[in-house]
């Protein structure tokens, strides 16, 4: 047993951030913070759920077979201490900001849960109007053609462009008079040149050349409405 295993039990990382990110990418797991852009609350919720599952799995083992975390003096044995906040900082966070109670986060871990949640959402849509504006993200695996890897934070656009997106939807007077709005071609070389001409449905979070697959492997997040 290497001497640094005790440090790993205590929550230290075994490898560097770049190597750990590559390992997580190869194994298909989510990696913080690259895989969760601007979703810190959702990530915290998901990590708490993971910790709960790990602790339940640990408590299901017979007591003689469990790892005794008291001997190893692990403060948070089921999470990693460097990026997960401790119980003390969580209490501080909850007392200082009350935004966490307002926003309700839903964790969906399987296709069955996703269909159940969509059905429940469709039933509640008539009674509760605010639920209709709920947008939830699905982690997707991308299969790009070609050999070049995708940039992180690249835009995922839908392939089929709806008609109202091409015409100006904000132009209400044209919609009243039912006049077809011709899409304007922006001159090249200005700010509008880099605006996407298709509706953006998601973002790429990580992309590497995978040696186990022999091709580019990429992950990202898209809106669930675009998948279903």
């Amino acid at each position: 047993m290497a001497f640094w295993n005790s440090f790993c039990y205590a929550g230290a990382r075994g490898v560097g951030l770049r190597e750990r990110r590559f390992l997580y990418h190869e194994s298909g797991r989510c990696h913080f913070p690259e895989d969760f852009p601007e979703c810190r609350d959702a990530y915290r919720c998901w990590a708490q759920f993971e910790i709960q599952i790990a602790s339940e799995r640990w408590s299901r083992r017979p007591p003689s077979k469990r790892v005794n975390f008291v001997i190893y003096r692990a403060p948070e044995p089921f999470g990693v201490a460097d990026w997960l906040e401790t119980a003390l900082s969580l209490q501080k966070h909850s007392t200082s900001t009350e935004e966490a109670s307002v926003t309700k986060l839903v964790i969906i871990r399987s296709c069955k849960d996703l269909t159940e949640y969509s059905a429940q959402r469709a039933n509640l849509q008539h009674s509760l109007s605010f639920l209709s504006s709920v947008r939830y993200l699905v982690r997707v695996r991308l299969h790009p053609c070609g050999r070049a890897s995708l940039d992180s934070n690249a835009l995922i656009c839908s392939a089929d462009v709806p008609e109202e997106y091409l015409g100006g939807t904000s132009d209400q007077t044209a919609a009243e008079h039912h006049q077809p709005v011709t899409p304007l071609e922006e001159p090249r070389g200005n700010v509008h040149d880099h605006q996407p001409t298709r509706p953006v449905i998601g973002r790429v979070t990580s992309s590497h050349y995978s040696w186990s697959d022999g091709c580019i492997r990429a992950y990202g997040f898209v809106l669930a409405d675009a998948i279903c």
Partner: peptide, 21 residues
């Protein structure tokens, strides 16, 4: 679906596959 880098104008075609446990 299509993927476009932030700084480029070229779209690349990709296939999406949802990752769920």
């Amino acid at each position: 679906a299509l993927v476009r880098d932030v700084t480029s104008l070229v779209y690349r075609e990709v296939r999406l596959e949802p990752v769920l446990d």
